[in-house]
């Protein structure tokens, strides 16, 4: 598990380095704001940036396509009210296909995240009025590799909506691995777009 931890740390640093380079070089960066739901119903929010590392056109007989290799650093928050809240730092590297004629796009990506869970262990209730006297929490940290599928459509040159589904594995040396399912629905703003 320690070897796995080191591998994830190296990968995380590598992703960060690529992100920083991409940020400096990318001509079409974008920023996204999305509703983030763990198993759909543990609500949260995610802010992402999106940088194309490489772009190449691919023209078929029917539709014009543009392909991108992209990197996307992200920060997320989601909560299970009364149970826990979670902070997520994540980087995704993926491949996107954009149908320029239909203004639609889809992508497949792999992510590596660092998840901090603040779990409520117990709650002390004052029974004279039912109010909460004290909440005891425990912080737990996990690596979170994910596989993600996203699709969306451009509304105009600057704005598009997207829907993303992600399967992740919560990994820690101290606990058994647990699968997480994320749902995302958001808006993406293209910066530097005329």
């Amino acid at each position: 598990m320690i070897q796995l931890k080191n591998l994830f740390l190296c990968l995380g640093l590598l992703f960060c380095q690529i992100s920083l380079n991409a940020q400096a070089k990318s001509t079409q960066p974008s920023i996204s704001v999305a509703y983030l739901g763990q198993v759909f119903i543990q609500p949260g929010v995610k802010v992402s940036s999106h940088f194309n590392l490489k772009t190449w056109p691919a023209e078929s007989e029917q539709v014009k396509k543009v392909k991108h290799l992209f990197i996307s650093p992200q920060l997320g928050y989601y909560a299970w009210p009364g149970n826990n809240f979670n902070l997520l730092a994540n980087v995704e590297i993926g491949y996107q296909r954009q149908k320029t004629g239909r203004n639609s796009f889809s992508s497949l990506s792999l992510g590596l995240g660092y998840l901090n869970t603040f779990q409520i262990t117990s709650i002390v209730y004052d029974q004279s009025d039912g109010s909460i006297d004290r909440i005891n929490r425990k912080r737990k940290a996990f690596f979170l590799p994910t596989i993600n599928y996203e699709f969306g459509k451009s509304i105009n040159n600057r704005l598009s909506w997207y829907n993303k589904y992600a399967l992740g594995l919560k990994l820690s040396a101290a606990e058994e691995r647990t699968m997480l399912i994320f749902f995302e629905l958001g808006l993406r703003f293209n910066i530097n777009q005329e």
Binding site: G82, N83, N84, Q119, I120, T121, S122, I123, V124, Y125, D126, Q127, S128, D129, D133, E175, E176, T178
Partner: peptide
């Protein structure tokens, strides 16, 4: 409303 009862309740969310 005058009770001194305080209840420490576990959030029972089994992980495994």
């Amino acid at each position: 409303p005058q009770t001194d009862l305080k209840t420490d309740a576990i959030v029972y969310n089994p992980q495994t």
